[in-house]
Design a protein around this nucleic acid. Structure first.
Length: 629
DNA sequence: ACATAACAT
DNA sequence: CCGTATGTTATGT
């Protein structure tokens, strides 16, 4: 392909998502050059290169599609359709709510600075192999979060790197969030260092303007924590320690959006940015220009979503975090490439131990286990297996993971991980007719898991501890109005909101082994059938001795049952579903816990699909609907 | 309904 | 000498 264009996108890719922000001590192109130079030759680099090439191919395909779609079409007519939708969306605009997006400035770095004032004004960053935050000073050198440490050091040799101390961030985060809650009890935290508030009620009660309110709030945060926070009232923010208010007027908002890079829109990442760019959409304003194309390729790009973006209309429903419904829990770790089976298994063991511990702490159990591994080439693969019974012991996790792993094995890995999904909270009162969660837009489709799935809200450690990049090293004048399209909109509409997110394409080697040892030619693979005598199934079944005696102790109620596996499983389902577990645990006090972790060898796989197929490239952006389907 | 990959934060 | 955790979706079986 065009070498120039390709390397350009690659360089950009390497530079990371936070590049391109002004105010640097070094020239951005110089920074990119250094990054590329330092990265070159590494396996990581090669992998990025490959991914970049694949993306380029996807783009070419999209362009072809577009050209076909455009054939003999009356653009005017297509535009009219889009315009009509625009009008409809416009009519839903709600300018009455004052939404604020608050974001701590360089959170981790700021906290570390409080802990060690000597760091003031010095270029430092937080993180280990990969940086999670860079101080403002360090940013001047092009150092960014998400950047490999060694690359950062090349950019800034004097860079001081500090390891993360999550407990500190967590404590600080709690304090700050508490303050936010004073202004909006139903605020919605978004990660540990930011959140959304609807201060409309507060302002009314206190006869304040939004700006006064936010000013006061930020002041409070600073006084009580010595941390600064930036806030955007309306769709954007400005930092550090800044505050920005976008007038609540349609025209102002649309104008603001006009030159905003689409990359700033939540949900549009690196890939979608490039896909959209390929059809001429770089800024939100471009959306209108190309509305006909987008309309014709609605399935790919999500017309509705983009038009809303263009209009600067997003959800304003800040209502509390109704979430708290964990969908998965997992653990993984990276290490220097390992080829030795025993050593790899040892890593897997570590992971299983950690995962069990994590699951135990909140009484999670799950029905499907996914093994994840990354080759030394950085290619990632996952292999999953589902069970009828709930899994949560280290023994089971390890056994299942091992099973999945062994059939892949002759590999050189640099990461191994396990994840459990189809979760259920053992402590939860159980199913109960509650229906607490999915009372939304159930389209009757997938409702079948309701039987087993019914965990309730659960406490849990702070999720996603990550600091996304912020804007500028320098305040004001720089106008780095980071959007946070978070504004105006009606609470109801969202029915069919489309959030463009690219999906796969790559003609990937389905087999890691093939990927390692061979080009990508003979990537054939005999599907390991599951239903039949699939090796995996049989293997697992064997590996985990099925009922030998016909007597089992129920891990829930501890009763000894004279029954086979089926019977035991049925009984356990009963215990779990009736919420009897809670009572049982109370009765049995703590000892029950221990019994719990005694390998259940009756688990049995229900499925084991091994999709070693060649996926078909097919670019497309899909729509993301809020509650619906 | 399930498994996998890709994407995003 | 380029991480970790979690969620979502598209796709094919």
């Amino acid at each position: 392909m065009q070498p120039s264009q390709e390397s350009a996108s690659l360089v950009k890719r390497l530079a990371g998502p936070s590049s391109g922000k002004a105010g640097l001590a070094k020239d951005q192109s110089e920074i990119n050059r250094i990054i590329a130079e330092v990265s070159k030759g590494s396996k990581f680099y090669e992998n990025e290169k490959k991914k970049d090439k694949e993306l380029t191919q996807r783009i070419n395909k999209i362009l072809k599609e577009r050209d076909d779609a455009l054939q003999g079409v009356d653009l005017r007519k297509v535009e009219l359709v889009a315009d009509q939708l625009l009008q409809e969306l416009e009519s839903q605009r709600d300018l009455t709510q004052m939404i604020v997006h608050v974001d701590m400035d360089a959170f981790y770095a700021s906290v570390e600075l409080l802990h060690n004032p000597d760091l003031a004004d010095k270029p430092f960053a937080v993180g280990l192999g990969v940086l999670t935050t860079a101080s403002y000073n360090a940013r001047q050198y092009g150092v960014r979060s998400g950047m490999a440490t060694f690359v950062a050091k090349k950019l800034c040799p004097e860079l001081i790197v500090i390891p993360n101390t999550f407990s500190r961030y967590s404590d600080m985060s709690d304090k700050v969030m508490d303050i936010f809650h004073r202004y909006d009890p139903t605020m919605q935290p978004a990660g540990c260092d930011e959140g959304y508030l609807n201060i409309t009620p507060y302002c009314e009660e206190h006869c304040m303007t939004a700006e006064e309110c936010v000013q006061q709030m930020r002041q409070a945060v600073f006084e009580e924590t010595k941390l600064t926070v930036s806030a955007g009232i309306a769709p954007n923010k400005n930092k550090p320690n800044g505050q920005f208010m976008l007038p609540f007027q349609r025209q102002t908002i649309v104008e603001f959006m006009h030159d905003l890079s689409i990359r700033k829109i939540p949900g549009i990442g690196r890939v979608n940015e490039r896909l959209l760019e390929s059809i001429g959409v770089k800024t939100c304003g471009d959306i209108f220009t190309h509305r006909a194309t987008i309309s014709l390729m609605d399935k790919r790009f999500g017309l509705r979503f983009l038009l809303r973006t263009y209009l600067g209309i997003a959800s304003n429903n800040v209502q509390p975090h109704e979430r708290e419904e964990r969908k998965s829990i997992g653990a993984e770790r990276t290490f220097s490439p390992l080829g030795d089976k025993e050593k790899i298994l040892k890593k897997l063991h570590e992971v299983s131990v950690e995962l069990e511990s994590d699951m135990k702490s909140n009484s999670w159990t799950g029905r499907t286990i996914t093994l994840k591994y990354k080759l030394d080439t950085y290619q990632v693969f996952t292999r999953a297996k589902s069970f009828t019974r709930w899994i949560y012991t280290q023994e089971d996790l390890y056994a299942i993971g091992k099973e999945l792993l062994l059939s892949e094995l002759p590999l050189k890995l640099r990461l191994i991980g396990l994840r459990v999904t189809k979760l259920r909270d053992l402590r939860a009162p159980s199913p109960s007719a509650g229906g607490i969660k999915r009372a939304k837009f159930s389209h009757g489709s997938h409702e079948l898991e309701d039987d087993l799935e019914d965990q309730e809200v659960n406490d849990e450690a702070m999720p996603g501890f990550h600091e996304h990049d912020e804007s500028e090293p320098f305040p004001s004048q720089d106008m780095d109005l980071e959007p946070e399209i978070e504004e105006i909109d009606d609470p109801y509409d969202n029915g069919s909101e489309q959030l463009p997110v690219a999906s796969s394409s790559t003609v990937k080697p389905q087999s890691a082994r093939a990927a390692t040892n061979k080009p990508k030619e003979e990537i054939r693979r005999r599907p390991r059938s599951n239903t039949e005598t699939g090796p995996s199934v049989t293997a697992v079944t064997k590996a985990l001795p099925t009922s030998v005696t016909e007597s089992h102790d129920c891990p829930i109620c501890e009763k000894t049952l004279q029954t086979d596996n089926q019977g035991l499983n049925a009984h356990i389902d009963f215990c779990l579903s009736k919420g009897a577990i809670r009572d049982a645990q109370i009765e049995a006090s703590s000892p029950a816990r221990n019994k719990f972790s005694k390998g259940w060898d009756w688990m049995k796989p229900t499925t084991t699909q091994d999709t070693k197929k060649t996926k078909q490239p097919l670019v497309k952006l899909k729509g993301n609907t809020k509650g619906g389907k």
